[in-house]
Write a protein that binds this DNA or RNA. Sequence first.
DNA 1: CCGACCCTGTACTATTTGATACGTTTCTTG
DNA 2: CAAGAAACGTATCAAATAGTACAGGGTCGG
Lengths: 279, 279
Amino acid sequence: MAGSVSEVIAEKLDAMPAGERRAAHALVADYPLIGLKTVAEFAQRAGVSSPTILRFVNRLGFQNYADFQSALQRELVQQVQSPLLRSKVVDSTASGNGVSPFVQAIIGNIAETFAHLSQAELQRLREPLADPKRRLHLLGGRFTDALARYMAAHLRIIRADVFHIAGQESNWRDQLVDMGKRDVLIVFDIRRYQESLVHYAQRAAARGVTIVLFTDQWLSPIARVAKHIVTCRTAVPSAWDSSASLFVVVEALIAKLTSEAGQDASKRIAELEALRSAP
Amino acid sequence: MAGSVSEVIAEKLDAMPAGERRAAHALVADYPLIGLKTVAEFAQRAGVSSPTILRFVNRLGFQNYADFQSALQRELVQQVQSPLLRSKVVDSTASGNGVSPFVQAIIGNIAETFAHLSQAELQRLREPLADPKRRLHLLGGRFTDALARYMAAHLRIIRADVFHIAGQESNWRDQLVDMGKRDVLIVFDIRRYQESLVHYAQRAAARGVTIVLFTDQWLSPIARVAKHIVTCRTAVPSAWDSSASLFVVVEALIAKLTSEAGQDASKRIAELEALRSAP
DNA sequence: CCGACCCTGTACTATTTGATACGTTTCTTG
DNA sequence: CAAGAAACGTATCAAATAGTACAGGGTCGG
């Protein structure tokens, strides 16, 4: 299956019987909307019978009508999603020449992530993250632990009661004992999802802990117990997934929280600076 | 029914029960592909039951699932058919998000960083990083420690002798004692540059250690003793600098090293996977 | 601590939908 | 012009799908 559906149609149009050719024309007329409807509708719009449509689809090389529709959907989504990032981002930065496809993919991921991340959703995160009465516990996996640390380091500057869950997995439980409804567990989990993280999140949820999850678009199983979910794009042309979009979301969140924290945070930062400069 | 489906979702997300919210997240995660599939598939991807999906669709204001799918198809086709309209939509959503300036600055930083980062420079990094005879020590500062950890976690997969320098600053010296000419110190340092890092790098350099520095465009003092310097853009409209470009450089470097390592790395990865699955 | 309410999944039903067999028509070709 | 083949539509079937009733479970308020 090389080219797009419309290309295959153009290629095989000559070798088609009259009825199927009418079907082809009807489909191309306002491509590809009719192809996404039912066979009966397609047939009516084309002025032929249902079996003709099915034969037409078969001739194009599809096993059944469902395969045909899936192909249409895929190329449709591809067309919509890729221009969104290509036209806006790469053009504005005007550096498509020397930048590797890997980096372009990452930039695309970031753009896509924020395109799907509504402002309202970030706003809701304020409640658990900015509330000084709550305690924040951050946890990451094999690679995402670095993200948890990074976020924790910044959160500690603008508020108190920030804890990073580190060390042996068996030691995590010690921190779980003291958690309750006023605690928040911020967990990072992307493919391949770590069982230990899932278990831990489930136990925490059972204790009434509010779970905030940062994950990829395929959603970690933790999503089932999470109250807040932030989905980020991670796919890149490489052996692994990229966490760059998660990283940027964290930075954006921190920046937002800082600017909204206002005087309280400023005062806190000043104190911290004083402590650092004169120990 | 004024806006697009995604807008309606964002609007009513707050008033949704947990299950339907999961459905919303799954849909937004890679919008709108899942919504075009069957109810059962949608349900499975979202981790909920079919009726929940139907209730979710009802809550969005659609009479039945078919109406919902038609709406998705229509806005999809509209975007594809009129590029003019599409750019308008992108602009409005981007500006409406509000996060745009911050995120755009980060994306700009990444693009700028790689524009100035010659491929030859990355190539030169192969010598110290890929050489199995060398030992790699990674060190980061207050915030950049997370980057050091992230890079170390990935490097450990494709090669041996990777050490992250952690813990008390006074303990760092213990690791310094064993360093020599065949050792490599990878250090992350951005504003405001940490004295402790600078001192450590200087001492290491004095022992003949090869220094690889990841820093911002204003150059950490460590640059004076570093053999390899990677400069990244960090400025963003926020209280702090952004480390996102450093993060992406690290990921790009790791990806490059992995693909070039070839069979040796593949074998190593396979062994690691075997160890992980059967401890 | 208990009851009412809302949410959620299981099991089932009714319907739509894709797919097929077969007879009729149309086109082609010797 | 006639014989054969190819194409097309009608009628029908089987399977997958959307939709619904109902009961268990969790949560919030009293």
